[in-house]
Structures are given as C-alpha cells and as structure tokens.
Nucleic acid binder design. Structure first.
Lengths: 216, 216
DNA sequence: GGATTTAAAATTATAGATAAAATTTAATAT
DNA sequence: ATATTAAATTTTATCTATAATTTTAAATCC
C-alpha cells in the first residue's frame, strides 16, 4: 500500500535537486557539475548522472552531450507554452474526473482552497494550489496524464518562485471557488472553461492581470 | 556544428532500444536486464542504465527500485489515454502553427500523405503518418509541446505495431486530406476538430471504426 | 596591444569491480 | 506431497579508477 518512495540514492538526489531548482536556488543557465553534487550527497557521480537524466526529462535541466547539464532557462514564451499545455491537459483530466467527483472530495478541495487563501507566503500558497488541482483531477484515472500535469506544475512553480511575477496576490483562489461551484452544479463545461482560463492566467503579463477575470 | 544527434553511447542505446520496444520485439512486462544489453552493445552497464532512465521518462519502460526495469505494459485504457492526450496537445499545436503554415508546407504535407497511401506495410505508413503530423505542427514554435507529442506518437506507434488493431487500412489518410483542405481555406476550427477526431480514432475499438468518420 | 595557437586544468563519459537486495532453488519438516 | 525455511545464484545499485573531450589559461606571434 505504501507507494514506492524511491529510496534509492538516485531518487533522493533527483528529488532534492528538483526542489532546489524549482525554488530558484540555481540561476537559469548555470552549470550543474556532477562531481560537486556527488561530493555534496556523499555519493559517486553515477547516481548524480542518472538524476540529471530524470531532471532532463522533466524539463528542469538541459543537457548538451559532452558539455554537461545546465539549469533550464525559461523566457516568457516558454512560461506561456507551459501554461497552455497545462490548460489543455488539465481540461482533459477534469472532463474525465468530473463524473467521479464526490461531495466529500469537493469539500476537501474547498478546505484546501481556504488554506491557500490564508497562506503566509508564495511557497505555502503554491503548495495549496497544487494540492487543489491534484485533488479534483486525480479521479480521472489516467496516470500518464497526471504525471505530465505534475511536471508542468513544477515548471509553473519555478516561474512563480522566480520573482518574475512579483506582486503575488491570491485572487486566483476566486477561480477555484468558481470551479467548485460549477462542479457542484454539474456544469462541467463551465468548470472546464474556468479552469482553462485560470491556468493560462499565470503566463499573462502582470499589467493585464485583471483581463483574464473579466473576459469570458 | 550539427552534432546534436546525441552521438554518445547512451544516446545510441536509447534510440536502439526505443525502436525495438516500439516495434514490439519485447513482450510487454518482460524484464530488460542491463548486463545483457551492455554486452550486446559492447558497452558497460552505466550507459545502459542511463538509457533506461530516458526510456522510463518516455513511458516505454517502468522501473521498480532494486527490481530493474520492465517493458511498459499497455492495455486498451492506456491506449485511449494516450490518444486523448495526443488529441488535446496536437490541437493546441495546430492552433499555434496554423497562422505560420505556408502553401509550400501544405504541398509537402500532401506529398507525404500520398506516400502514406502507397505505403507497402504498416511500418512505412506509420512513418509517413508521423512525418505528416510533425510537418504541420512544428511551426507552432513550442519545443516542449513538440517533444511531448513525439513521445505520445511513439506510444501510439507501439500499439499500432502490436497487432492489436490488425486490419490496417489507410482510411485515416482521408482525414489528412480533410485537414489539409481546411487549412488551405483558413478554417482553423474545422481543421482542429478534424485532427482531434482523427487522433482519437486510434483508440477506438475496431468494430466502430467507421463511426469516427460519420459523426460530426 | 590584440589575436591565435598551444598547453594545462577541469569535467564528462566509460569501464571494471564490489556490495546489497531479490529471486530462484533446494532442503527439511509437517 | 505440500508448505515453509534456508542457502545459492542472479541482478541491481553503487563505487573507484581510467580515458577522452572541452574549457580555461598562458604564451607566442603579428
């Protein structure tokens, strides 16, 4: 029953590095040296290399053959790309999850949403946000889709923590409320449309931040 | 210049194994032993392990810690999942690519489509099919989206070669024609809807194969 | 003084070897 | 004969060491 926590050294290094990259500890484009992390984690370079390959697949680092790996750089175009991919895939997931959403799940989602509104910092808010999305999408029963969405969430979080979008408010939680309301009323099309708009909002420039809430 | 072909041993092993898994050489669920392939490719097991990690990210193998990797098993549910993800992402790509599609590109797509119709076997047809999709989607200028679509194409091809769907006909190339026609007339919504239906068709049971062409 | 070539240092990629874990096989007891 | 336990073998995961490549630095030449 306990899901494999991937207790291997490669797994631990992968998780630790992913978290630090998302948190913005390394500048985009900076080199990641395998020997350095091998020493830091008290391991050899082999598991570090395997961790690099996993991070590469997640899009967190880019690897040039024989030149090592660098932290993936992301410009505004890539942020919007990730947002659009998320919108497309989360809508798909919601369409399949909606029929299986029970009242209990929606209540739990509402509680998570409240926690997000009271979050003291961006970090806590992002965690609540991710939990909210995951909770209402997971019942779709499509594992490959869920991992793809998870990877895109990580990329989004990286942007969120980068300070690119500085004035962090919690207004998107209003979108969450609207989504929950639509789901309770079995208005799946409305819920999907709101979710799409909500997800794409993260890639919009700060100045137009209200547009996405007024436009249909 | 131009040596981003990943000339590393890890890259070669990854491509070779991916091709063989897609071709159905290994039974789904069968174990892949690293020492075996290390010997076969005349390499050590380290690059084999790195290749495994890449294949894992592509969804071609699954890895249980300390138990090795197995060829990913796919049931009909997973095939449909991949088809729906492809539909969602390819529609997104087409929407961004459409404005940049020139007449020359569409002519080339038509030539590829003809080649697909004259393909002697499933293998050649799939290659033409993949080239067709890639050609009209690549101008979207979203690299992350394109690699995601490529991975899903690989999973689809695996199903196609598995003999699950045996009676292979080339009727989907009619869909290709319809897509090209709509693109030439700048009817992007029609093109997107046709593409979505076309991609999802691969996951439908054989008996209902005509449904997707008659339904709107 | 600036640019080009050469040498040195750092880093990646691979190989061979070792330890730990799991699966298989064998043996014993019921 | 079947089930349970224990030994043996196979396989994975990791480490240390070596070879090859790239980057950095210096030195020489124009």
């Amino acid at each position: 029953m306990a899901h494999d926590k991937d207790d291997t050294i490669t797994g631990r290094i992968t998780r630790a590095l992913a978290e630090r990259i998302i948190a913005g500890e390394f500048a985009p484009g900076s080199k990641l040296r395998q020997d350095h992390f091998a020493e830091e984690f008290g391991a050899s370079h082999v598991p570090v290399r395997e961790a690099f390959r996993r991070l590469e697949a997640q899009g967190l680092v880019v690897s040039e053959p024989r030149r090592g790996v660098r932290v993936a750089s992301f410009d505004i175009a890539e942020v919007r790309e990730v947002a659009e991919m998320r919108a497309a895939l989360e809508v798909l997931a919601l369409r399949h999850a909606a029929p299986h959403l029970t009242g209990a799940i929606l209540n739990e989602a509402e509680a998570i949403n409240r926690a997000g509104e009271n979050a003291p910092d961006v970090r806590a808010w992002e965690e609540a946000n991710r939990a909210f999305h995951r909770l209402i999408l997971a019942p779709c029963g499509m594992p490959r889709l869920m991992t793809a969405i998870d990877d895109l969430h990580a990329a989004s979080a990286r942007f969120l923590f980068s300070g690119f979008r500085m004035e962090w408010e919690a207004p998107t939680d209003q979108d969450h409320r609207a989504i929950l309301k639509a789901l309770r009323e079995r208005q799946f099309d409305v819920a999907a449309a709101t979710l799409a708009r909500h997800v794409k909002w993260i890639g919009t420039p700060p100045g137009t931040k209200t547009r996405s809430r007024t436009a249909s």
